[in-house]
């Protein structure tokens, strides 16, 4: 048992070390998501029945949207944009074609979930949702400017 505890603690230290790098960015993302949800909750004023059906669908939509946007960012080289001058024409073509494919996927997703939102919320609340999402982004931009 002592042997395994020792192994466990060594492993734990290794994990904690590697976690500390990734933790901060992921934590910020979680916080922003929680803030967005709180913001939308305030704006929409959903009944308990509406909330019960809306939030699981909205969470699923956000997960899918995040995944597409993350894939897009990776495709374009993340923060350090790929240097197209150093790439072959074929590589550049694949990169921009993939980017367009992902943009189309994103639009398709937004369209699909637009219909789902309309089936669980009155249309005025769907409009309020889109407005709230926009307002939240503007709030974030304001914070960055500060």
């Amino acid at each position: 048992m002592k042997k395994y505890l020792l192994l466990f603690f060594m492993f734990l230290l290794l994990c904690l070390g590697s976690f500390s790098f990734a933790q901060s960015a992921a934590d910020k993302k979680d916080k922003i998501q929680a803030m967005r949800v709180a913001f939308i909750t305030n704006q929409l004023d959903l009944s308990s029945k509406e909330a019960q059906t809306f939030w699981p669908i909205y969470n699923e939509y956000q997960d899918k949207l995040d995944a597409i946007r993350e894939a897009r960012r990776k495709e374009m080289g993340g923060e350090n944009k790929r240097n197209t001058d150093a790439m072959t024409d074929k590589e550049v073509e694949t990169m921009i074609d993939n980017d367009i494919t992902l943009r189309l996927k994103e639009t398709e997703l937004i369209k699909n979930y637009h219909f789902k939102f309309k089936s669980v919320l009155p249309v005025k609340k769907v409009a309020k949702l889109y407005r709230a999402e926009d307002d939240f982004k503007r709030e974030l931009l304001k914070q960055i400017k500060k």
């Binding site: 960015a25 910020k28 993302k29 979680d30 916080k31 922003i32 998501q33 929680a34 803030m35 967005r36 949800v37 709180a38 995040d66 946007r69 993350e70 960012r73 923060e79 926009d134 982004k137 503007r138 974030l140 931009l141 914070q143 960055i144």
Partner: peptide, 23 residues
């Protein structure tokens, strides 16, 4: 999730997935 979150030192890279050109 903790519903009472606040964030300090917000930077562009933290929100880039949320921002569209039209914003």
């Amino acid at each position: 999730p903790n519903p009472n979150q606040t964030i300090k030192n917000l930077q562009y890279r933290d929100v880039q997935d949320l921002i569209q050109d039209t914003d």
